[in-house]
Design a protein around this nucleic acid. Structure first.
Lengths: 335, 335
DNA sequence: ATGAAAGCGCTAACAG
DNA sequence: CTGTTAGCGCTTTCAT
């Protein structure tokens, strides 16, 4: 049951390893007769090159690791798919890792756990700080995603969260005056929420609207239920709003639930805008408008940077902004 | 920028490779003094073992491939997570592959594309037939998931779809008489739908209810929208039902939409039961009851079978049934 | 308890 | 255009 090796094929075809190798790699300078003979031996023996051995010999694995907090979260699974597909176009395969946002798992990612297994890593940190990443990282090519940490030494891709939040807020301002922000999570360690809140505030200031802290809703956690509860409670307290900008699509789903329970119609009474443009936005009732990070764009930029690093590019960390848009659906119809 | 190797550490510590290897592997018979000296050299040099080289030497990769139709589909991403987590407990890492259900990609999975890269493969086929899989598969350890194909030579894990459909139908029958099935997709190549429909029919027959083909709703595709449209059209034609058993959670979401549009209340007028128990079921309004395959259980069984095969187990394909349940939420409240 | 040396299967100089 | 050979970095007998 021992596997067929290159030498077995060579012996069978009565040629050297090099010739077999040339055939396997579709090298040009092989006589057709030779090629046919070798191919026959390959087929008869059912030869498959051993990828591990090839990697060791070439020093190139053709694989990159992608480390994300949760592989089954809608945004991350959709982004993973984009990255895997774009990587395939660029000749790489992707090893998907889940950190669950745990510090230890994140540290393992940075500290060359994948030594010699992958050519580089794309990493979306949650709990590691900028300082920590800068300090612990090895010389493994690395590109960071998301907004929580950005060491000066490391490449980084994100969307402009502040601008996106401004765009969203301005959209909602077109027909409404009182725009809520849902939500700031207590003890949120991710920088995303802060940036989004910041953009929301900027847009209001630019519009000459006085800040109103009662419009900023804090949730107890990241679940849909937490968002629903936060908005429900606020509505019960008499909160009066025309629209709500949500931190992500899950929170927006919670908002739709809370508004429905309160007997408010979306979008007629209150408009709702989500964030991430995941598949959730297309299946809710009403369908959900959502700030849409360009996932393919993020994937492409991250891979380009990473592949340059793999190719030997040195220098300080580059900071790239990926495009975003707003996918308009029913929940903001008329805006 | 050349990496630190085992020999570098050995030279630095003034010992042989073997001793360093013993330390790295936490072998028992190493004197504490020696261990300390070697560890110091490892730390100073920042040595990380090259995993590719280790793999080539040991012949074991410690990695398995998981090939699924779509990595961002709720059911598959959740199942992937379970498999990755259980695999980690068992000392394996998972390389996730996406086939998009394409015949060519599926064939590549079977035909040792991963040669020497992984120790085995867990594969959820969609378009490959039983015969084709039996014919094309190499000697790479393989476990199949899902219900579409089951060659006699290959291990296979699934839930009892027929029984699960009976269970679901019986639950719905407790308070309703007219139970619809949504949906059979035109040209559905997966066996799942047929089995589920079969279980539904069996349950009705056992209850002495005459079959009624007007209750079996065919959809034009696998999207939420297809399901919504199918049920809407049926309701518009005057279809009168007490409950609907859905082929999967996405179809159930579509059913909720169609019922809401028709002014029917769930669960009071019509109960809805989904299938797969994905996160979608927890965020819909009302929340969705769903037939729940035990994803951890599937993962555990699949990995146990695969690891036995990796360990050299020979013999005919084993056919294992994983447990299922029904997660009851609002959409069937009162049943 | 530690060292020396022979592979694991493939690639890539370098010859011929 | 084809063959020979020396590694890639690690594990693993077999000695000592």
């Amino acid at each position: 049951m021992t596997r067929v090796r290159l030498t077995d094929v060579a012996a069978r075809a009565g040629v050297s390893m090099k010739t077999v190798s040339n055939v396997v790699h579709h090298h040009p300078h092989v006589s057709p007769a030779m090629r046919a003979r070798v191919q026959e031996a390959i087929d008869e023996l059912g030869y498959r090159p051993n990828l591990t051995a090839r990697r060791l010999a070439t020093g190139r694995t053709g694989m990159i690791a992608l480390a994300m907090p949760e592989i089954d979260h809608p945004y991350f699974s959709e982004l993973s798919r984009s990255i895997a597909e774009v990587a395939a176009e660029m000749g790489y395969r992707v090893l998907i890792e889940q950190t669950l946002g745990e510090a230890e798992a994140e540290r393992a990612v940075i500290m060359d756990r994948e030594a010699g297994l992958v050519d580089g890593v794309i990493f979306h940190p949650v709990s590691m700080t900028t300082v920590e990443i800068g300090k612990l990282r090895r010389d493994l090519p690395l590109v960071l995603l998301g907004e929580s940490a950005r060491p000066l030494t490391t490449d980084h891709v994100m969307i402009d969260n502040v601008q996106a939040a401004r765009d969203g807020t301005e959209l909602l301002r077109r027909t409404g005056r009182r725009i809520a922000f849902l939500g700031t999570v207590s003890h949120d360690v991710t920088g995303s929420t802060a940036q989004r809140l910041h953009g929301y505030q900027e847009a209001l200031e630019l519009a000459g609207v006085p800040g109103d802290t009662s419009l900023v809703l804090e949730t107890g956690g990241f679940r849909v239920e937490d968002a629903r509860a936060a908005l429900s409670a606020a509505l019960a307290r008499g909160l009066d709003i025309d629209a709500v900008l949500c931190r992500d699509d899950r929170f927006a789903i919670g908002a739709l639930q809370a508004l429905a329970e309160a007997g408010l119609s979306v979008p007629d009474d209150v408009a709702v805008l989500g964030w991430d443009d995941t598949h959730l936005a297309t299946i809710s009732t009403p369908t959900l408008s959502s700030i849409a990070p360009d996932k393919r764009g993020i994937a492409r930029i991250a891979l380009e940077l990473l592949i340059e690093r793999i190719g030997g590019h040195q220098g300080v960390g580059r900071h790239r902004i990926a495009p975003h848009g707003i996918e308009q659906r029913q929940s903001t119809a008329g805006r």
